[in-house]
Simulated assay, not measured.
Amino acid sequence: MSREEEKVVIRAMRPGDVEAVLAGRREVMWKLEKEEIISQLFLFIHHPYFFMLVFLTPLLLYYFLQMGVGACLVSGTGLVVVVEGFRFLLFWRNFRDGYGAKEPDILNLVHYYSHTRRSFLVAVVEGEVAGTVAVRETDDPNMAELSRLVVHLKFRRRGIALRLIQACHREAGRLDYTAVMLRTPPNNRGALKCYQKAGYIQYGIENVTRMYPHKFDLLKLIWKI
């Protein structure tokens, strides 16, 4: 075990931790959202749908409005940008809602995790909150959900994520669950590698939002105690 790992203390969240927990989460989520926007835009401009729009829109303008070729190209491109930009904003709103930006636990962490079958843990390094993980119930009374796994950016590559996952498993056992499930994006390779190392296996996939050609899916993984 490295010296960085030895300094990590994992414990239940206290009311005084809430501000640091939310600040760290906002920082990490902003980074993830920027990566997702870039990924969605890259996939869009390489999708046949994009090329079809860019080709057909100026052609239709030329055919129906009898505009000049240059005007059709400029107007058609502008129309595609406006319409698809608006559609992407609608998709992004659904993405943020479905990905947990407005879930009740974020609005009131202390109250939400005072429930007898829920728990919120923090990893502390030299008095500073370095990461979080939560355990909460699912529709199956024997299965918990691992959620809110976040390692703040300045504390990454110290093995903290794996230690939080293992702490989550111990907490789930203490709360009388026999299995733990989680959801994660398929393109989050670093997280997937960490979950697989912790013993998770995939058992399904869930679509959070879809607005052709944009889509956002989550892999469903499970670990049994």
Score class of each variant (00 low, 15 high):
residue 22 L to F: 04
residue 132 T to I: 11
residue 21 V to E: 03
residue 171 E to I: 02
residue 225 I to L: 00
residue 67 M to S: 00
residue 69 V to E: 08
residue 60 L to Y: 12
residue 222 I to W: 01
residue 59 L to E: 03
residue 165 I to R: 02
residue 136 R to G: 10
residue 108 N to H: 11
residue 62 Y to S: 09
residue 50 F to C: 13
residue 47 H to V: 07
residue 29 M to D: 10
residue 98 G to V: 06
residue 188 N to K: 02
residue 78 G to W: 06
residue 206 E to H: 15
residue 11 R to C: 06
residue 57 T to Q: 03
residue 195 Y to M: 06
residue 193 K to R: 15
residue 147 S to D: 12
residue 39 S to M: 10
residue 125 V to G: 03
residue 7 K to T: 07
residue 139 D to K: 13
residue 43 L to P: 00
residue 77 T to R: 02
residue 209 T to H: 02
residue 162 L to D: 04
residue 223 W to K: 14
residue 60 L to R: 05
residue 171 E to M: 12
residue 104 P to C: 08
residue 41 L to K: 07
residue 65 L to S: 09
residue 74 V to T: 11
residue 110 V to R: 12
residue 186 P to Y: 00
residue 187 N to D: 14
residue 134 A to R: 02
residue 205 I to W: 01
residue 194 C to Q: 06
residue 192 L to G: 04
residue 159 G to R: 08
residue 34 K to M: 09
residue 7 K to M: 13
residue 223 W to G: 04
residue 143 M to Y: 00
residue 98 G to N: 06
residue 167 A to L: 08
residue 55 F to V: 10
residue 83 V to Q: 07
residue 97 D to M: 06
residue 163 R to W: 07
residue 181 M to I: 15
residue 174 R to T: 15
residue 223 W to T: 01
residue 36 E to I: 02
residue 208 V to Q: 00
residue 145 E to C: 05
residue 168 C to K: 04
residue 149 L to H: 02
residue 215 K to R: 14
residue 60 L to G: 13
residue 86 F to D: 04
residue 179 A to F: 05
residue 139 D to A: 13
residue 157 R to I: 07
residue 146 L to Q: 10
residue 82 V to T: 12
residue 69 V to H: 11
residue 131 G to M: 02
residue 118 R to N: 08
residue 36 E to D: 15
residue 172 A to T: 09
residue 221 L to I: 04
residue 101 A to R: 09
residue 67 M to H: 00
residue 75 S to H: 01
residue 160 I to H: 01
residue 172 A to L: 08
residue 44 F to C: 08
residue 106 I to Y: 02
residue 224 K to L: 08
residue 41 L to G: 09
residue 51 F to M: 10
residue 215 K to S: 15
residue 147 S to Q: 03
residue 98 G to Y: 06
residue 46 H to G: 15
residue 152 H to G: 07
residue 205 I to C: 11
residue 89 L to M: 15
residue 217 D to E: 04
residue 202 Q to P: 04
residue 79 L to Y: 05
residue 123 A to F: 10
residue 70 G to N: 07
residue 125 V to S: 08
residue 9 V to W: 00
residue 222 I to Y: 01
residue 102 K to I: 09
residue 175 L to N: 10
residue 196 Q to H: 13
residue 175 L to C: 06
residue 204 G to P: 11
residue 139 D to L: 11
residue 154 K to P: 02
residue 172 A to P: 05
residue 76 G to R: 06
residue 77 T to L: 15
residue 45 I to R: 03
residue 39 S to I: 00
residue 11 R to Q: 09
residue 108 N to K: 10
residue 58 P to N: 11
residue 104 P to M: 10
residue 107 L to W: 01
residue 137 E to L: 03
residue 130 A to K: 04
residue 77 T to A: 15
residue 46 H to L: 14
residue 220 K to D: 01
residue 102 K to N: 14
residue 124 V to F: 00
residue 17 D to A: 08
residue 117 R to S: 14
residue 143 M to D: 01
residue 7 K to C: 08
residue 174 R to A: 15
residue 24 G to C: 06
residue 214 H to L: 03
residue 88 F to Y: 13
residue 62 Y to E: 08
residue 187 N to F: 13
residue 196 Q to M: 14
residue 5 E to S: 13
residue 17 D to S: 08
residue 105 D to E: 13
residue 133 V to E: 04
residue 80 V to W: 02
residue 10 I to P: 01
residue 193 K to A: 15
residue 26 R to A: 13
